[in-house]
């Protein structure tokens, strides 16, 4: 069945198809639609919903639901996401799965509700205290928003780690006609759930306390993630002289810019990292040596470019088109590329 949905509604529908059992959230623009969806629809789909009294509360309720074996989800933005970092760090160290949606909003502190991609550092480099990474998945369309929850829960349970799904507020509010998937129910009796024991009690606690080889365990976990889970999309990169790197709404704009540039005889292509962590460095393997890489993003500190430079070992020429929250136009991109 096809339906016209915005990104947030699609994400909620996608989460139902992924068998979500539990949603706890605290409203914050631009992620509120997800909260509202579950508030209205949870009974119909048998999802436990709780209107938490803060983001701290929301993520800890999800922690508890995950310990019970459920597929737990929360959705937030900006400062709300910052409030969740402690529990995300706990879940990473305790090997507890969970999916967190962070719809990025503009600026530091309160900022504003405009589109932005300013949380890339925070999401990919940790955010909370200690030695951990969360897997980070980005969406560029309403279609992606439908598909991503299933991938997110799969990865969260495979590696027993928190997974963050992210997009900007343009994708959150853009409306597209998409095919929705069948709703699934997830059985909470999974192998990691605590259910009580007769002997040999199970313990969910920081890995440093109960695993004597925690160095190895942690190293293996993140090595496996980095080896197996790099995901990306690429378009016309085989013969490209100019390669854009962009996520979310910027991918959509660059896609059009690629077609315009190609029609003008400039060989352009685009790489979209779907996993921001682990960064899909293999996507850059077959580029020509003199390729110019243009990173298009919505933040001032060039957060995505920093990863691109590092993971491609600084061997290309790098350029940036970046604004705080104003979307670059196709014309602006084309003009910029003509200059270089």
């Amino acid at each position: 069945m096809k339906k016209i949905l915005n990104g947030n509604e699609a994400f909620a529908m996608g989460a139902l198809s992924a068998g979500v059992n539990f949603f706890a959230g605290y409203p914050i623009t631009p992620s509120t639609d997800v909260y509202e969806f579950f508030m209205k629809e949870h009974d119909k789909y048998g999802v436990k919903f709780i209107s938490a009294t803060s983001e701290i509360s929301a993520i800890n309720l999800c922690f508890g639901a995950s310990v019970a074996g459920g597929r737990a989800l929360t959705a937030t933005s900006g400062c709300g996401f910052s409030l969740m970092q402690e529990a995300i760090s706990y879940m990473a160290s305790d090997f507890v799965p969970c999916v967190i949606l962070n719809v990025m909003r503009e600026g530091a502190g309160l900022g504003d509700i405009n589109r932005s991609q300013g949380d890339i550092f925070q999401m990919t480099k940790g955010g909370g205290n200690g030695d951990y990474h969360s897997i980070v998945l980005s969406c560029s369309s309403v279609r992606d928003c439908i598909d991503m929850p299933e991938i997110a829960f799969m990865l969260a349970e495979k590696y027993r780690t928190p997974v963050i799904v992210t997009y900007d507020s343009d994708i959150a509010h853009i409306k597209e006609n998409v095919e929705i998937k069948e709703i699934k129910t997830h059985n909470i009796d999974s192998n990691f759930a605590l259910v009580g024991s007769k002997d040999n009690p199970k313990r969910i606690q920081n890995i440093y306390y109960h695993d004597k080889n925690y160095d190895e365990t942690l190293k293996n976990k993140y090595e496996m993630i980095e080896k197996n889970e790099m995901r990306y999309r690429s378009y016309k990169t085989d013969d490209a002289d100019i390669v854009f790197v962009a996520i979310s709404i910027c991918e959509r704009i660059c896609m059009e810019a690629v077609n315009v540039l190609r029609s003008m005889g400039i060989k352009a292509g685009i790489i979209t990292p779907i996993t921001l962590y682990p960064f899909p460095k293999v996507a850059f393997n077959n580029l020509k040596e003199d390729t110019k890489i243009v990173v298009v993003e919505l933040n001032i500190l060039k957060q995505l470019r920093m990863d691109v430079e590092y993971f491609t070992k600084f061997k290309y020429k790098y350029y940036s088109i970046n604004h705080m929250s104003k979307c670059p136009t196709v014309k602006e991109i084309v003009e910029y590329v003509k200059e270089i």
Binding site: I50, I56, N60, L61, F63, G64, E86, Y90, L194, Y209
Partner: peptide, 20 residues
């Protein structure tokens, strides 16, 4: 079976568990 919760969040984690 036990769970070590973030500081001060025991009641929330317990609630999340109990709901399921």
């Amino acid at each position: 079976d036990d769970v070590m919760c973030p500081h001060g969040r025991v009641l929330d984690v317990s609630r999340g568990y109990k709901m399921l």
